[in-house]
Nucleic acid binder design. Structure first.
Lengths: 156, 156
DNA sequence: GACCTTATGACCTTCTCTGACCTTACGTAT
DNA sequence: ATACGTAAGGTCAGAGAAGGTCATAAGGTC
C-alpha cells in the first residue's frame, strides 16, 4: 500500500464511506494538488479502481465549476444480484475481471473473506488454465453458477 | 547450509515467525540487494522452499509498489483436511465422491452451509461437464486448491 | 563423469505515473 | 449573438518501477 494510486483509492473510499447519499463529488485539480501528483493520475485511479465491475460509476463535467462525481452502485440492496452479475459476467470473463467482481461482492458484504478466497482460488488461471480461450468461458459459467447458489433462499 | 538459498530461506522464515497475521510482505528487489544476489534468486528460493507442499502460499504484485506476500498455511489445521487432501492425490475425483467429502467437511463444521453449497455448485457435473474424463481431473485440481485455501492462516 | 541443486542474466509482463496536447463549459466584452 | 479567455476535466504515449520466466552456467555430491 505504499504507492500513490493505492493511497488515493483509499482516500476516495473513506470519503465514500462518510457520504450519506452513496456518492461523493470531488475536483480533480484539488485532489491532485493534495496528493502532489499529476492530475491525470486521478484519472488513472478512477479508471483502474472505480470501475463498473467494482461497483462504481464516475460522472464528470469540464469547464468552470467542473467536478468528478463517484457513485456507489449497490447491488445488494435491491434484489438484482443475479441479473446485474449475470450481465457483468456475460459468456466470457478474464481472471482480472472476475477478481474485480469478487472484490465488489466482498465490499458489499455479500461474500465473507473466506468465501471470496475460495472462489478466487477456483477461478484462478492456474486452476482453470491450459485451455486457452475456453478458460474464460468456463470461468464465466462457474461464476454464474456461484451467483445463482448465493441467491438460494435456504442459504440466506 | 552456508549457501545463499538456505540463508534467504532462513531470513524469510524468521520474518514469518515474527508475523502476527500469518503472512509477511517483502520486496524482491530489496531482498535481492540485501543478499547481494540476482533478483531471480529470490524466485528460486520461493519456488523451491515456499511451496504449497511445504505449507506456504505466495502472492505478488508487479509494477510500482509491487510486493511479494508469503502466507503460511496452518499445517496442523485439521486432520480431516489432510485426509481429504490425501484422497485427492489420485488426480481424479467423481462428483459423487466430491459431494461425500464435502458433506463430511460440513458435518465437522469446517465448512459453513453456504461455503459447502458454493463449492458443490462449481464441482457439479453441469458446471465442469462436457469434457468426459478430463472433468474428474479438473474437479480434483479445483478441490485441492480449495482445501489449500481453507488452510490459509490469514483466513482463520 | 553423471546428476542434482544453486545462481545468474537476458528478456518479458504488469502496474504506475507524468506531461503534452485535446475538449468542454462558463463568463464577459463587443 | 459571437468571440474569446479562462477554468476545468479527458486522452494517450511513453518512461519508470516493480515482479516473472527460462535457458544456461556454476557448484556440489556420489
Amino acid at each position: 500500500m505504499g504507492n500513490l494510486a493505492d493511497r488515493i483509492e483509499q482516500y476516495i473510499k473513506e470519503a465514500m464511506a462518510r457520504a450519506e447519499e452513496g456518492y461523493v463529488v470531488l475536483q480533480r485539480g484539488i485532489l491532485a494538488e493534495a496528493f502532489a501528483c499529476a492530475p491525470s493520475q486521478i484519472n488513472y485511479v478512477l479508471d483502474t479502481r472505480f470501475t463498473v465491475e467494482r461497483g462504481y460509476l464516475v460522472e464528470s463535467r469540464r469547464g468552470g465549476g467542473g467536478y468528478l462525481r463517484i457513485v456507489r452502485l449497490e447491488v445488494a440492496a435491491d434484489g438484482l444480484l443475479h441479473e446485474v452479475m449475470g450481465q457483468l459476467i456475460g459468456d466470457s470473463v478474464s481472471q482480472e475481471r472476475a477478481n474485480s467482481l469478487l472484490a465488489r461482492l466482498y465490499d458489499e458484504e455479500i461474500l465473507t473473506a473466506r468465501e471470496a478466497a475460495i472462489i478466487k482460488s477456483v477461478l484462478s488461471r492456474e486452476a482453470l488454465g491450459g485451455r486457452g480461450p475456453e478458460e474464460n468461458t468456463l470461468r464465466a459459467r462457474l461464476m454464474k453458477r456461484i451467483i445463482t447458489t448465493l441467491c438460494r433462499e435456504d442459504l440466506q
